[in-house]
């Protein structure tokens, strides 16, 4: 699914990612944890194609294709989805119009015709149920005036609509209340198949109780410094990051 080799990236001349190696297979869930500022969001931005960051070295293959050569929109159309840590507000653009455009652009890329209005509305209804998102939210402008938690829910709703192969969830749990956390995590689980994978970035074990990872990585100062089974997350919860910092 995803194969990252020695990925290095910088912003404004400052190196943030210092050689990332990561292998994600179809059906796998990987958790990435790590202290603030270690480069987790940078990694997801670079994978999603945000050109504020410059890739200086390394290689990324996404289902066999050279990911780093594709423009951001093609990465999305190929099936890469990023749930943003800080979703952006787009005033004046309705959620429905936004999603219709996104869905149809992807279909066009895959050589399919646009969806009929009826099919689209049905899809919208079905996917809203998956994340139990309020009708009122989808009739508004994209994220405009949404609460922090509503924005996160809306990310997962969009994920459901776009049916990605690989989802990167960047702290989707932060800002969610306890019920919402459960709903969102259940949503993610419902969308999971043996052919789809996720990278879950989080600070808390809480989310990993629901979305159970196959592998846990610790990112520190732009490098993956430790990789282990799901118990590694529990260990971190208990001990914090000091022991990691000491050995690095």
């Amino acid at each position: 699914m995803l194969s990252i080799k020695n990925l290095k990236a910088e912003i404004d001349g400052k190196e943030i990612l210092k050689g990332i190696n990561l292998e994600v297979k179809p059906g796998e869930v990987h958790a990435i944890m790590g202290p603030n500022g270690s480069g987790k969001s940078t990694l997801s931005s670079v994978l999603a194609g945000n050109d504020r960051f410059t890739v200086t070295d390394g290689e990324v293959l996404f289902n066999g294709k050279n990911l780093l050569e594709m423009p951001a929109e093609d990465r999305s159309r190929e099936g890469l989805f990023l749930s943003f840590q800080y979703p952006v507000e787009i005033p004046g653009v309705s959620m429905v119009n936004f999603m219709k455009t996104a869905v149809n652009e992807k279909r066009k890329y895959l050589g399919q015709g646009p969806m009929s209005a009826g099919d689209f509305l049905k899809m919208l209804r079905d996917k809203k149920k998956v994340v139990e998102i309020d009708d009122r939210l989808t009739s508004r402008s994209v994220n405009e005036g949404f609460s922090g938690g509503e924005k996160k829910k809306n990310e997962i709703f969009q994920m459901a609509m776009l049916e990605p192969k690989l989802s990167i969830l960047d702290e989707t749990d932060s800002g969610l209340d306890i019920d919402a956390l459960r709903i969102v995590a259940n949503g993610v689980n419902k969308l999971k198949t043996e052919n789809t994978s996720s990278i879950v970035i989080t600070h808390y074990q809480r989310l990993l109780d629901y979305i159970v990872p196959d592998v846990v990585h610790i990112l520190y100062k732009g490098r993956i410094v430790k990789t282990g089974p799901k118990e590694l997350a529990l260990e971190l919860e208990e001990k914090g990051y000091d022991w990691i910092k000491e050995i690095n």
């Binding site: 423009p71 951001a72 929109e73 943003f84 952006v88 936004f98 996104a102 776009l162």
Partner: peptide, 12 residues
């Protein structure tokens, strides 16, 4: 960041 958000959803 608004543009990138759209790009990430497959919109040029």
């Amino acid at each position: 960041d608004q543009i990138f958000y759209c790009n990430q959803r497959g919109i040029s």
